[in-house]
Amino acid sequence: MRPIPILTALLTVAVLFMLVFQREMVRDFVGLGSDAEAAVEEDTPTEETTDASRISVIAMRSAAQEIDSAVVVRGETEATRSVTLMSEASGRVIAAPVAKGDAVAEGDVLCSLDPGTREVALKQAQAQLTEAEQNLNAAEKLSEGGFAAETRVLSARSAFEAAQSGVEQAEAALDDLDIRAPFSGLIEDDPAEIGALLQPGSPCATVVQLDPLKLVGYVAELDVNRVSMGAPVGARLATGDQVQGRITFIGRAADPVTRTFRVEAQVANPDLAIRHGQTAEILIQSAGRTAHLLPQSALTLNDAGDLGVRVVGEGDVARFMPVDLVRDSTDGVWVAGLPDETAVIVVGQDYVIDGVAIDPTYRESGT
């Protein structure tokens, strides 16, 4: 067997092994280094990558303004006074000098009842009074002369006073036959007809007073402390008419169902053009406050359901700020609870949350 060919073959195999496997190891080592460098490059953010991660929004710079903060409530008109007059005596109606819708003055007769025997009772009481007066005079003269006891004088005086009371009662019974208006106003319904028999407690007529007139509304418990006695009030009726007055009453007890408080204002109604029960939008003047005028679309809710807006915070990040809705207008909504000067996100606020980096573009207020 020849040893030289065998050694040559083994040497050739060894050289080939080294060439093949050593080259793969070097390649793997070089590749690992390239991947590490690539990973380092990826972990190092560039300015271009950082700017691309910010969310573009449109914001509006807003400054707080002093506004008149009126309390607005829905209400209605109401007669200042309304009373249904009842009969205090029994009798038939012999005269009804007024009709439904008539204007009456204080003291005008609305219903007259048949006097019956009441006039006769008055004459009898007057005669008894005259007799009692004469007996008292005679008893006093006799007592002065020592011819009558003091008890006789006392008895005569008691009879005289009883007769006086009888006359007064008879006169009052006649006065009750004429049912009179307690104040100036209008007859609201049909008065009792002639010939109708009235008993004590039977209605004669209803009188309402419309000048001055009352405006009645119900204020929410959150706003009732902003209403004060004598505060100016303006109201717009459903007909378009406008009236002005002042607060005359603020309720102290809340409605058990709505938790609102009754307020009343008095307004002039000299021509009686305003009727009882008309719908009215009532504006009650209250102390002014500072607020921001924002587009209504800028309002949003946070995860807790709080009403607010998102503003541009320090470092151009989005921040949620709760607000109080003061009132709305044709130009937007007035809100309170923000700093005097702030930048409110008006477009894109629903796509960002607190702490998100933003790229704001500013626009002028009112555009």
Rank of each mutant, 00 (worst) to 15 (best):
Asp306Ala: 15
Thr279Phe: 04
Asp241Asn: 01
Gln242Leu: 03
Arg289Gly: 02
Asp328Tyr: 11
Asp271Ser: 11
Gly234Arg: 10
Val312Ile: 13
Leu222Ser: 14
Thr260Asp: 06
Gly305Arg: 11
Leu299Thr: 05
His276Phe: 05
Val219Trp: 06
Asp331His: 07
Ile250Val: 13
Val233Leu: 04
Ile250Glu: 04
Arg310Val: 05
Gly234Ile: 03
Val326Glu: 04
Asp255Glu: 03
Phe261Met: 02
Ala273Leu: 11
Val219Phe: 09
Ala254Gly: 07
Val224Asp: 07
Met321Arg: 15
Gly308Lys: 12
Arg252Lys: 01
Leu299Tyr: 11
Arg252His: 03
Leu293Thr: 09
Val224Gln: 02
Ala280Pro: 10
Val219Ile: 06
Asp271Ile: 01
Asp324Trp: 10
Met229Arg: 08
Val312Gln: 10
Val227Met: 05
Gly305Lys: 09
Thr258Ala: 07
Gln296Leu: 14
Phe320Ile: 06
Val233Gly: 07
Asp223Phe: 07
Asp223Lys: 08
Thr239Asp: 00
Glu281Ser: 06
Val263Phe: 05
Asp324Gly: 06
Asp241Cys: 06
Trp334Val: 00
Asn225Leu: 10
Ala304Met: 12
Val333Ile: 15
Trp334Pro: 11
Pro270Tyr: 01
Val311Asn: 11
Gly313Glu: 04
Ser329Lys: 03
Val257Trp: 04
Ser286His: 05
Leu272Arg: 13
Pro232Ser: 00
Gly230Ser: 03
Ala220His: 08
Tyr218Ala: 04
Ala318Cys: 08
His276Asn: 15
Leu293Cys: 02
Leu294Met: 12
Tyr218Met: 08
Gln296Pro: 10
Leu325Trp: 12
Leu325Glu: 14
Thr290Leu: 13
Gly217Pro: 04
Gly277Asp: 10
Ala254Phe: 08
